[in-house]
Design a protein around this nucleic acid. Structure first.
Lengths: 135, 135
DNA sequence: CTGCATGCAAAAACTTTGCACCGCC
DNA sequence: GGCGGTGCAAAGTTTTTGCATGCAG
């Protein structure tokens, strides 16, 4: 049985309030402002638990520490190869690629993990800065 | 300038001879049979170098250690959620998803990383075992 | 009260690195 | 023989875990 904890509540709220996909370390540093005694171990344990409960999502980045996303609606991520920032991308479903893969594989393709990379607006050559909002 | 080394040659050959995407540790254990004094550090250094040279590919798996692929022709990977094995999937290009993503993102989408998951033939319920060859 | 959650610290898992020596070119 | 590669070991990075105590139900 899972019991309520103020720390977990705080972590959950922190994540759903942001859209910059913080690492466990960043979560730790911020929750510490409210709960100075919280330990990094507790942050990891709660992030892990929240993932299992489906309340947040883990984003694995290579190389580097995992990041966490409080937005669990289906969407994709964009990694800027210059500054390392992670952005949300909301696109129509591309689940048809599962069917394509399944047709060429002797097994059962249930899903895919995809992320996109390139240069974000901030890192692109000057001149084309519209104010598109990613979050 | 890059110099020849027997160890690097051996690592390269080992990878191009296999299709099971071994980890650095597995590479180490196998190369050791031929070069008992090789160190894990050397294996990592050479895997890293071979990646930079574009002679092999690194596959990041979450969770778990990175895996390495001696096959650099474009293809995708399938991760069995039951046994953890990694298989090659050769499919037609799905690069159109870059265009889809680019249309919804204020920046420049240059590419994507995708892997598929599900159950492999070995881990599927009995009865449907054709002899499709994945490698 | 019972037992899950926490804080702390140690350890685990994976990878990189400093340094002295070795061996390509 | 000069300089990149190696072996070894130490250290770095990220995450997990054991244990005594704290707090929700």
């Amino acid at each position: 049985m899972i019991k309520y904890s103020r720390q977990r509540e705080s972590i959950k709220n922190f994540l759903t309030d942001r859209c910059d996909h913080p690492t466990a370390e960043t979560v730790y540093e911020n929750i510490r402002k409210e709960y100075p005694n919280i330990s990094l171990g507790t942050v990891y344990r709660n992030l892990s638990l929240l993932c299992e409960l489906g309340e947040i999502k883990k984003i694995s980045v290579s190389p580097g520490p995992d990041r966490f996303d409080g937005n669990i609606r289906p969407h994709y991520h964009f990694f800027c190869r210059n500054c390392g920032r992670v952005y949300d991308i909301h696109i129509e479903s591309i689940d048809h690629i599962n069917t394509i893969a399944d047709a060429s594989f002797n097994g059962s393709v249930e899903g895919h993990v995809t992320h996109f990379y390139g240069l974000c607006k901030e890192c692109m050559p000057k001149g084309n800065h519209s104010d598109y909002i990613n979050c």
